[in-house]
Write a protein that binds this DNA or RNA. Structure first.
Lengths: 375, 375
DNA sequence: TTTAGTTGGTTTATGCAATCAACCAACATG
DNA sequence: CATGTTGGTTGATTGCATAAACCAACTAAA
């Protein structure tokens, strides 16, 4: 059929086991609409590869019959690294196939896009040797940056904090230095990847991630990430998620109308923060209700109190914009991983790619291979 | 491999010919990443079936070589019917595989959901006999209704104009009476289907359709339809597209804040209409920019003058909400089919289904078959 | 007119994923 | 202990896609 590539149903089976740990062969066959013998063959190959194992026997059904054999992912078969790039430092994380955090650290690095490849390749080398002690292989590294990113080409199209205003082919520089796949994406989108992976059992379809950051210069920065149909949504020119409040007038720069008059400091003015939250909520309510999103995640560097304020404000505004009797059906949730969201999400891109069913693309599809691991 | 089902690549080839009339076998092979012999086999089968034909020879390349043979869809191999259900009448349309209108008519019918199935089956019988004279076979019928629809089950979940406030399994009633596939969807979504099919060569990915209607009772009604990734987006509970302005306060019913104070009649007050357009524009701007949509279609029963006013207002508001230098990149376009948009779109659902590549679903996929046409 | 080179398309043999049908394995119940 | 039920495996078969060789039809240049 194809040279070597991920044979379609292999990934479907693998993904299902990933989503539903402890599932049996028969259940997979029913779920995927394949013959049970096909599942036998595929699971046998996956077991040979070592990426899944049998965990235990389940219980027989009420009418007797053979006990099912539960299957699970060998969670430390691979690990993925995630790196959040900030102006003055990097947050680094390593997670395994189930999204469990193996380790994380913060590294000082005065961001300079031309120095970064060297820094990056050293970092990967360190991570690899750390993982080597645990007998885990690195499957790849994800990078999350603020700005507009083309993740297919791995190019940064624009990034104010990184001082990039024309297309910069970062991936090309990086792949030349390391021998693992590297993915790059916008920070808000990374957060979406993170929630997709972390909450994979829920099979989230349509949600928004609202990323709030306090910046020394410009007050508050809002980044949005959107997932539609269980995939991160990029839109034209990969610019989805750029936020500007509907209440902004004229040529003003900035994102929130309230902040044209006032300034906010990180943790003191909860009154103003509430106003900001309300304005933000009004905006997001329109998005949430017109697109019928099921979840709204809140993340960024917020205190617990601020999170609380914002949740309430969002809830109020979602209901205000709700056309039907009763309350808005959108869940409001705090980000699952707090200050490590971006790094975690960056790593999740790699994990997700291992278990994602390749779409039947319109145009010819070129799969890519995963490194190492002698089979 | 599989029983009979639409063999995946058959549909991919067929779709490509549908999208690019006059394409050659080699071009298809290159585009889809398949071997040219595979395309030979598939096109041979499609020719046997009669759904495609060779149209003419193209020109040889600059360095000589054999001339390519252009392929095209046999456009009258099937037709699809589309029915827009309104409280007092139905707009009916018939289109062929290329989306060309074969005929259309308006039929008086005092909508009553319990009488509708009988009306519908007579209508289909009439359409079939009309098509029979042209030697065209009916592939199916699409129905567009105002309200919230579950198109998978073919159930109307809620519709104020039709007086439905609990789930009504319309499809079940209808399929019992006719022998062709029937699809039902919300009117705004139908319009999206229509644009997807009508502009298929563009391969539209992410766009919004804004459906404006004047109603005797409530002034103006706004319906939105959204397409993401070349597919209509439904969201949680199929409720995507329900619109309520961010400027609405408190418990007010209605959609537009301006109209809480004022009333508008169909064609006289262009000042007020401009205000409405601006408010609407502010809202849509947020959607268009956050989701990075490439197009915004305007449809419904607007005069040319009103369309002009609204286009300008949208453009202004899109730019106001635009974060970057220059102008918003979202195209603003008048609906391609004016007052027949919904019916056309309803028919397009059927056409689209014939040429849509079945997604690799997570769960077992149950393909469905197309009626008639002795092969 | 001949020859070489290029591109479009078909034919034939082969590989391989998925299926079917028969079978084995392990449990419950009367 | 026979019987029914469910979980899972084995071996033969099916049919899609491929590769490689081939034919067809054209240009360009000698």
């Amino acid at each position: 059929m194809r040279k070597r590539a991920n044979k379609g149903n292999y990934t479907r089976v693998l993904r299902k086991i990933w989503l539903s740990e402890g599932i049996s062969r028969i259940e997979i066959a029913d779920y995927l609409g394949l013959d049970k013998s096909t599942i036998t063959n595929i699971t046998a190959a996956l077991q040979r590869d070592g990426i899944i194992t049998e965990m235990s026997e389940g219980d027989a059904g009420p009418q007797g019959g053979r006990k099912p054999i539960k299957l699970k992912i060998e969670k430390n078969f691979y690990a993925a690294a995630g790196i959040e790039v900030q102006p003055d430092c990097c947050n680094v994380i390593c997670i395994n196939l189930l999204g469990e955090v193996l380790f994380s650290r913060k590294i000082k690095f005065e961001m300079d896009i031309f120095q970064f490849p060297i820094f990056f390749s050293k970092l990967i080398k360190d991570i690899k040797s750390d993982l080597n002690e645990k007998r885990v292989i690195l499957a790849g590294a994800g990078i999350g940056v603020s700005g507009i990113v083309n993740p297919e080409k791995g190019a940064i199209l624009e990034s104010i904090p990184l001082g990039i205003n024309e297309e910069f082919p970062l991936l090309d520089k990086l792949s030349a230095m390391v021998d693992v796949p590297v993915f790059i994406d916008n920070d808000g989108n990374c957060c979406c990847w993170g929630e997709l992976v972390f909450n994979r059992a829920e099979q989230l379809q349509d949600f928004i991630y609202c990323f709030v950051e306090f910046r020394d210069d410009c007050g508050v920065a809002i980044g949005l990430g959107v997932a539609i149909d269980g995939k991160v949504h990029y839109g034209r020119n990969y610019s989805a998620g750029e936020f500007r409040s509907v209440f902004m007038e004229g040529e003003n720069s900035g994102q929130i109308a309230i902040l044209n008059d006032e300034r906010i400091n990180k943790e003191d003015d909860s009154d103003l923060f509430e106003k900001i939250s309300s304005e933000l909520g009004r905006n997001i309510a329109l998005l949430v209700n017109t697109f019928a999103l099921s979840d709204c995640f809140i993340g960024g560097d917020l205190t617990t109190a601020q999170l609380e304020i914002m949740s309430r404000a969002l809830r109020t505004e979602f209901n205000r914009n709700w056309s039907y009797p009763g309350e808005s059906e959108c869940r409001i949730r705090a980000s699952s991983l707090r200050e490590l969201s971006v790094a975690y999400g960056a790593a999740s891109m790699i994990i997700d790619s291992l278990f994602r069913i390749p779409a039947v693309r319109d145009t010819g599809s070129a799969e890519f291979d995963i490194p190492g691991r002698i089979i």
